[in-house]
Design a protein around this nucleic acid. Structure first.
Lengths: 232, 232
DNA sequence: GTCGGTAGTTGAACACGTTCAAGAAAGGCG
DNA sequence: CGCCTTTCTTGAACGTGTTCAACTACCGAC
């Protein structure tokens, strides 16, 4: 009675140079077409034809059409990291660093907004390997969390001792929230998302500072207990 | 270059008793099969066959397979409301009322966890009429928000004047968060979600109380400004 | 009662994602 | 060079959601 009986074929990593080349060819063709036509409008047949290979060949390297999205995901991760680097080198204030990373994320993603929205659909499915919470995407997820750890460690912010180890993951979660908003954001150039970032960063900044406040001790304690329980 | 060219056909509301009957028949058959086999494993052909109609007939009433999910959505809404009623009649404390409604939601949804997870995938797509944020689902959304308004108005809680009008919608948003967690929750019987609710309700309760606190004035002000900006 | 129009119904046909048995190319080994 | 194994490639075929032109049932008006 379970949904999605489990993936039938795991796409193999190429073992030869020829294979690697074909893999890249299909990958790049797919990403280009996704950007040009959107995800739904890009058929596997079109990808194969444009890449000059047979349909089945694409399935030798990528388990499904959805798996091609993972390539987009991975590439974006790298680009975001690169786009955020200058800010991380320059800024020392926690808020500025956080804002820098979040804006870098949107900078990179914006050109692909229409396509990325559809991609998010697939990512939202819990059983999908594309889910940001899934085991399969634990590598890119950890890379993202590490980025937020760097936001924190490179900053001058004084953070509550109990909060500090949890914070990178919480920031990543907030980032997921921003992306969720961005995906639904139909304002021109996704300006609203920019406003969300600029509004929410000082808020987080302030909350992090407040976390050391006496009155809030019980609340923060409560939050951490909950997180600990849920983490398992 | 936009994704999803816009729905081609809007499914017509039945105008005769015969039509209404067929519509219900298809609807009920579909919901039953979804529950029995899961969403992906239920084909439109199977629905039609079990209902004793032609495939095309289902499309006369429901624009797509996804639209059948909306029926599930609507029915759940009604059941949740009913399940929450006793608690709303009995309890006066804000926390107890909120917990009651949230638990009622999970109570109703739990039998369909596997299926509902898949359904959530479709709901996550921004362009989908099924998205909880979309115009098409504004009716059920408003009904849900009203439920949370009732949680508030029937309670003895003292709430900051500025927060009060915003709170129902914020609670609904929190509810969406709970559902998102629930969908990803693979613990037996979704126990973790229960823990989340029991952990997060006192937290919200406390935060609502704190909202009147002097020190937090700037923070709450900041939050409301942000919300106002984003609302448009 | 018959006629005309609206509401409802049909199932073959289409395009898509995906599979798979068959074969081609490449590489290693004597 | 010839042989075997692994890696890669092919495209026809399957099952799916969806469409649509043709058809039937119903109902009000005359």
């Amino acid at each position: 009675m379970t949904e999605q009986p489990a993936p039938t074929t795991t796409a193999g990593e190429p073992a030869t140079a020829r294979g690697e080349q074909t893999r890249q060819l299909i990958r790049n063709t797919a990403l280009r077409l996704f950007r040009e036509r959107g995800y739904a409008q890009t058929t596997m047949r079109a990808i194969a034809q444009e890449a000059g290979v047979a349909v089945g060949n694409a399935y030798y390297y990528f388990g499904s059409k959805d798996h091609l999205i993972q390539e987009f995901y991975a590439q974006s991760q790298v680009e975001i990291r690169a786009a955020a680097q200058p800010v991380l080198d320059r800024e020392e204030a926690f808020g500025a660093r956080l804002a820098g990373v979040l804006h870098a994320g949107i900078d990179v993603l914006t050109p692909s907004h229409d396509f990325a929205a559809t991609f998010f659909k697939t990512a939202a499915e819990p059983t999908s390997p594309l889910s940001p919470f899934s085991a399969e995407s634990s590598a890119p997820r950890q890379a993202a969390i590490d980025l937020f750890a760097e936001v924190l460690t490179g900053s001058t912010a004084k953070v509550d001792a109990e909060l500090r180890p949890q914070l990178p993951e919480l920031l990543w979660l907030a980032y997921m929230g921003v992306v969720l908003y961005w995906v639904h954001d139909r304002s021109a150039g996704q300006v609203k998302t920019r406003q969300l970032i600029d509004g929410v960063v000082p808020l987080i900044d302030r909350l992090v500072a407040l976390s050391r406040l006496r009155v809030l001790r019980p609340v923060t304690r409560q939050v951490f207990d909950l997180i600990r329980t849920l983490r398992h």
